[in-house]
Computed example of a mutant assay.
Amino acid sequence: MSTGAGVKKALDAYGKQGLEATVESASPGRLVVMLYEGAIKAVQLGRLHMESGDIAAKGAAISKAISIIDEGLRVSLDKEQGGELAGNLEALYFYMIGQLFEANLHNRADLLEHVLGLLVDLKDAWESITIAGAVPQQPPPETPAVPDRNAGTLSYGRA
């Protein structure tokens, strides 16, 4: 193993340990913000790879964003305490997943930008709540409305 590879491996290990420590000590609100940050980064990488023509990397980045939204944000919703708001967020997450799927399938950077805007808005709302120190047990009060376009056409593994 070369010195450069050894340094990269050490830095990767350090980064993983640092992330694990951050996650273990983070409040629930901060964890949600971290999930949004991860999804935002993945969408941005997907857009960059789309622009550069790197199809495999584009697909991997968009798939990562879909996983964060579906397996992180959507699954963590508390539908009993969150009520209608949690239901609206779930619908919005399904909408974003569908838009990301379409963006990946048809190389639509505009759809990536649209989802990116939604994610940034949601992250900003959570950050303002988290910074204020009043982390609610349910989602923030204002979430973007789910557009009616493509309603019912989502075919990403779940109906």
Results as ranks from 00 to 15, higher is better:
Val120Asn: 05
Asn104Gln: 13
Thr143Ile: 13
Leu100Ile: 06
Leu48Met: 11
Gly117Ile: 06
Asp54Ser: 09
Val43Met: 05
Tyr36Glu: 03
Arg108Gln: 09
Lys8Asp: 12
Gly87Lys: 06
Ser155Asp: 15
Pro28Gln: 04
Asp70Glu: 10
Gln81Lys: 15
His49Gln: 09
Thr3Tyr: 08
Gln138Gly: 09
Lys64Gln: 15
Val146Asp: 00
Gln81Asn: 07
Gly4Asn: 13
Arg158Lys: 14
Gly157Ile: 09
Ile97Ser: 03
Ile66His: 12
Ala134Glu: 15
Leu116Lys: 07
Glu84Asp: 10
Val146Arg: 08
Asp121Val: 01
Trp126Ala: 04
Ile131Asn: 14
Lys41Cys: 00
Ala13Met: 12
Asp54Ala: 08
Glu37Arg: 06
Lys16Trp: 06
Ala159Cys: 04
Val33Cys: 09
Thr3Met: 02
Thr22Val: 14
Lys8Gly: 00
Val115Phe: 06
Phe94Gly: 10
Ile66Gly: 09
Asp110Val: 02
Tyr93Lys: 00
Ser25Leu: 14
Ile69Ser: 04
Ala56Asn: 02
Trp126Phe: 14
Gln137Asn: 04
Gly83Gln: 06
Pro144Asp: 04
Ala56Phe: 11
Ile66Asn: 08
Ala134Pro: 03
Leu112Trp: 00
Val120Gly: 10
Asp70Gln: 13
Ala109Cys: 04
Gly133Ile: 07
Pro28Asn: 05
Ala86Arg: 07
Arg74Pro: 02
Gln17Met: 12
Gly133Leu: 03
Asn150Tyr: 15
Tyr93Met: 02
Gly38Trp: 01
Met96His: 07
Ala86Thr: 05
Asp54Ile: 00
Val7Thr: 08
Leu11Ser: 10
Trp126Thr: 02
Ile40Met: 02
Gly133Asn: 07
Ser155Gln: 13
Pro144Arg: 04
Leu48Ala: 11
Ser128Leu: 15
Asn104Glu: 10
Leu92Pro: 01
Glu102Asp: 15
Gly83Pro: 12
Gly15Tyr: 07
Ala57Pro: 00
Val23Cys: 06
Asp110Leu: 07
Asp148Pro: 07
Ser128Asp: 14
Leu116Ala: 08
Pro147His: 03
Leu48Pro: 00
Ile66Leu: 11
Ser67Glu: 09
Ile69Thr: 01
Pro139His: 07
Asp110Thr: 02
Leu92Ala: 03
Gly87Val: 03
Glu90Arg: 05
Lys16Phe: 10
